[in-house]
Write a protein that binds this DNA or RNA. Structure first.
Length: 610
RNA sequence: GCCGCUUUAGCUCAGUCGGUAGAGCAACUGAUUCGUAAUCAGUAGGUCGGCGGUUCGAGUCCGCCAAGCGGCUCCA
C-alpha cells in the first residue's frame, strides 16, 4: 500500500484505531460477520462488514457502549509483519475472504513482500496501521456513530453488498460537538429544504423522478443566470444557436456515444411500420429517435451545415441546451443529480494553435462568473486518461499519441492561467482531457459544477472539416465548456452557497413593499408600478397582517430589500429600507432607492451600491 | 440498479396495546389598521403513498409495488 497523502498524525491514529474498536464491537454483537475495509476518513472513519444478522441505527447505542467498554480496557495495539506466504496463511486462519482477496492483490499486483497485522485485545486485522499504542489513548467521548449504509465491496456493483457503518471522530469531545453542530447547521442550507421553502422547484411523481418542475421563483434564477451567461459569452465572441431535444439514433453511433453511453440514455423511441411481402406482414422500425444526453452532436451538425474556412475559426456556438440522462434511480438527489437538465453549453471549433488561447479565455470566463457569484470554495481538477485502466478501451478513445499531445496543451494552458489545480487520473471524458470545477455540497458530497473538455476525437468521427490556408481540408479541435454547468446542479450549489438569501440581482423577489396599514396600500401600489417599469421584481404585501408579521414573512422568505411605507414615507415620498440580514433601517427618497436598486441589479453587486 | 431507513392535511410533526385521525404553521372568512421577526376568533382541509393479506375490526401487523432520504473505492 502506498503511503497516505495525509500525515499519520495522532488524529489519524485515533480514527484508524477506533475503526478496529468498532469492528470488535460489531463482532461481539454479530459473531461470524466478515470484514471489509475500515479506513479513517475526513471527519472520522467507517468500517464495512458482511453481517450475519442486520444491524440498524437503533443498535448504535449498544455499539457505542461496547466501544467505550473496549477503550477502557486499555487494549494494546501490537503489530506484526509477516512474509507474503505466512501472511496469506494467517488470513486463511482468520477466515476473512475479502481481506484475503486484497492481500493477494497487494502481493501479486503491487509486489509487496510482507504484510502487517495489528492485534488489539481479541481483535486481529490485516492493517497497514499506524495505531495508538493503547486504546486508553482514545478519549471515550470523541466519536459518534453516524449512519449505516450499503456499500459494494471495492465500490463495484458486480461485487457483494456490504454494510458500512460511518462514524464521526475527532481529537476530543469539544471538536466533535462543534463538528456535529456545524453539520446540523449546514443542513438548514440544504437546497432540497430551501428549494421547497422558497418555492424554487418541485419534483412531482406524476411527471417523473429526476425531472424537476421549475416554479416561478426558480425560473427567475434560471433566467438571471442565462442572462449573465449570454452577456459574458456575447462579449467573448460566442454565437447563439438552438437545437431540438431529440434526434435520430444514428447520430450517436457516429459520434461513438452509442452503444457505450446507452445505459445512461432514456430508451430509444421507435416509429414502426407494417410491411407486407411474400412471407407475410412484419413490423419494421422505420425511424428511431432518442432524447439527447448531450448537445455536442447537434452543434457539430451546425458546424457541418456549411463550408468552413480557417478564417472563420474559432467558431464558438453557445446554447442553454436541454439534455436527458438516465441516471440510476438510487443516485438521484434533489436538483444535484437529475434526469433532465439544462446545460450552459458551448462548443468552440478551432485549430491546434488556437486551443491554448481559447482554453485560457474559457478559464477567464469561469473566473469572472465565479467572482460575480462570490464562489471561492472549489478546486480545479485536471482530469486525464488512465492508460492502465482495465476498462480503458471502452472508456477512452484509443489514441495514446493524441492523449499525450492534448493533455500537454491543457496542462500548459492551466499553468499559464496561474490557477491551482490537482490531477484526476482516469477522470477524463472519453474523447479528451478536461478541467472540472469540484464543489462540496452542504452534506459534504463532492460534485462537479462546471467542466471544460478538449475533444480531439469526435470532430474526426463526424468528418468535420475546414479549409486551411493551404487550400486543403483539416479537422478542427473542439472545446466543450460549461462554466455554469447545468441549471439544476448550479442552482443547487447557489442555493446552498447563499443559504437561500440571494443577492438582489438574482433574488426571485427583489423588493417587498410593506404598507404599515391599509390606507398606504394604494401609494405602495404606485411605487410598485414605478419600480416594475424599471424591471425591478417587486411586490406589495397588501395582506391585513400586522406590520411585525409582514416583516417576519418577508425575512422568512429571505427577500433582500424590505421597504416600509407609512404616513411619513407617503408625505415625503421616501421609503424606509431594511436589508436582509440587517436590523438597521435607512430612509431615503424613493427616487434614490429606485436608482440604487437599478444599479445593484445592473452591476450584479452583492451589496446595495450608493 | 443494490443495501438500509422513511412515507399521516400544502409544510413540520403527534397518534399508546389493533377499536375508523390530531396539533402548530400555511389557506379561507370575519374582526382588528397596527412603525420593523408571529393580533384575535372562526371555517375548511385526510382513500393515513398504492395494491393485496391477516383480523369481528388495520394509520398501527404481514407481503408486494411506488416515491423520498443516506450510502455504494478518502481503501490493509
Amino acid at each position: 500500500m502506498e503511503p497516505q497523502d495525509a500525515p499519520h498524525d495522532d488524529l489519524y491514529r485515533i480514527r484508524h484505531s477506533l475503526a478496529h474498536v468498532l469492528a470488535q464491537a460489531v463482532l461481539q454483537l454479530r459473531p461470524g460477520s466478515t470484514l471489509g475495509f475500515g479506513p479513517p476518513i475526513d471527519d472520522g472513519f467507517y468500517y464495512d462488514f458482511i453481517l450475519t444478522e442486520p444491524l440498524s441505527e437503533d443498535d448504535f447505542g449498544e455499539l457505542e457502549k461496547r466501544m467505550r467498554h473496549i477503550i477502557k480496557q486499555g487494549q494494546k495495539f501490537e503489530s506484526e509483519d509477516l512474509p507474503a506466504e505466512a501472511a496469506l496463511a494467517r488470513i486463511d486462519e482468520m477466515k476473512e475472504p475479502y481481506k484475503k482477496q486484497y492481500a493477494q492483490e497487494l502481493i501479486e499486483k503491487k509486489g509487496l513482500t510482507s504484510l502487517s497485522f495489528y492485534k488489539n485485545g481479541p481483535f486481529l486485522d490485516m492493517c497497514e496501521g499506524p495505531h495508538v499504542e493503547s486504546t486508553r489513548k482514545i478519549p471515550t467521548d470523541c466519536f459518534k456513530l453516524r449512519s449505516i449504509a450499503g456499500a459494494y465491496w471495492r465500490g463495484d456493483s458486480r461485487n457483494a453488498m456490504m454494510t458500512r457503518i460511518y462514524a464521526w471522530a475527532f481529537a476530543d469531545k469539544a471538536t466533535l460537538d462543534a463538528h456535529v453542530k456545524a453539520y446540523q447547521d449546514a443542513l438548514a442550507r440544504d437546497h432540497k429544504k430551501l428549494g421547497r421553502e422558497l418555492d424554487i422547484y418541485v419534483i412531482d411523481d406524476e411527471i417523473g423522478k429526476g425531472l424537476p418542475l421549475w416554479l416561478p421563483a426558480g425560473t427567475v434564477l434560471r433566467d438571471e443566470l442565462e442572462k449573465l451567461a449570454k452577456e459574458l459569452e456575447f462579449k467573448d465572441g460566442y454565437q447563439r444557436v438552438a437545437t431540438p431535444h431529440l434526434n435520430k439514433v444514428e447520430l450517436f453511433y457516429k459520434t461513438g456515444h452509442l452503444p457505450y453511453y446507452a445505459p445512461h440514455m432514456y430508451p430509444v423511441m421507435e416509429l414502426k411500420e407494417t410491411v407486407t411481402d411474400a412471407t407475410g406482414s412484419h413490423e419494421v422500425v422505420k425511424e428511431a429517435y432518442c432524447l439527447k444526453p448531450m448537445n455536442c452532436p447537434h452543434h457539430h451538425r451546425i458546424f457541418a451545415a456549411r463550408k468552413r474556412s480557417y478564417r472563420d475559426l474559432p467558431i464558438r456556438l453557445a446554447e442553454y441546451g436541454q439534455v436527458y440522462r438516465f441516471e440510476d434511480a438510487g443516485a438521484l438527489s434533489g436538483l444535484l443529480r437529475v434526469r433532465g437538465m439544462c446545460m450552459n453549453d458551448a462548443h468552440i471549433y478551432c485549430t491546434e494553435e488556437q486551443i491554448e488561447d481559447e482554453f485560457l479565455k474559457v478559464m477567464d470566463l469561469h473566473r469572472r462568473v465565479y467572482e460575480i457569484l462570490g464562489l471561492s470554495s472549489y478546486h480545479l481538477r485536471f482530469s486525464t486518461w488512465d492508460p492502465e485502466d482495465p476498462k480503458g478501451k471502452e472508456k477512452y478513445v484509443d489514441n495514446p499519441e493524441a492523449w499525450a499531445r492534448t493533455e500537454a496543451i491543457v496542462h500548459r494552458a492551466m499553468v499559464k492561467s496561474g490557477l491551482p489545480f490537482s490531477e484526476g487520473k482516469g477522470e477524463a471524458a472519453f474523447y479528451g482531457p478536461k478541467i472540472d470545477m469540484q464543489f462540496k455540497t452542504v452534506t459534504g458530497r463532492e460534485e462537479t459544477a462546471s467542466t471544460n473538455q478538449l475533444d480531439f476525437a469526435v470532430p474526426e468521427r463526424l468528418g468535420l472539416k475546414y479549409i486551411g490556408a493551404d487550400n486543403k481540408e483539416h479537422t478542427p479541435y473542439c472545446i466543450h465548456r460549461a462554466p455554469l454547468g447545468t441549471h439544476e446542479r448550479f442552482i443547487a450549489f447557489l442555493i446552498e452557497h447563499y443559504g437561500g438569501a440571494f443577492p438582489t440581482w438574482l433574488a426571485p423577489v427583489q423588493v417587498r413593499l410593506v404598507p404599515v396599514a391599509d390606507n398606504f396600500v394604494e401609494h405602495a401600489n404606485k411605487l410598485r408600478d414605478a419600480l416594475r417599469n424599471e424591471f425591478v421584481r417587486v411586490e406589495v404585501d397588501d395582506s391585513n397582517d400586522t406590520l411585525n408579521k409582514k416583516i417576519r414573512n418577508a425575512v422568512t422568505q429571505k427577500i433582500p430589500n424590505i421597504c416600509v411605507i407609512g404616513e411619513r414615507e407617503m408625505v415625503d415620498n421616501t421609503v424606509t429600507l431594511r436589508r436582509y440580514g440587517e436590523q438597521r433601517q435607512e430612509s431615503m427618497p424613493f427616487d434614490t432607492f429606485a436608482a440604487r436598486m437599478k444599479r445593484a441589479i445592473a452591476t450584479r453587486s452583492r451589496d446595495l451600491p450608493e
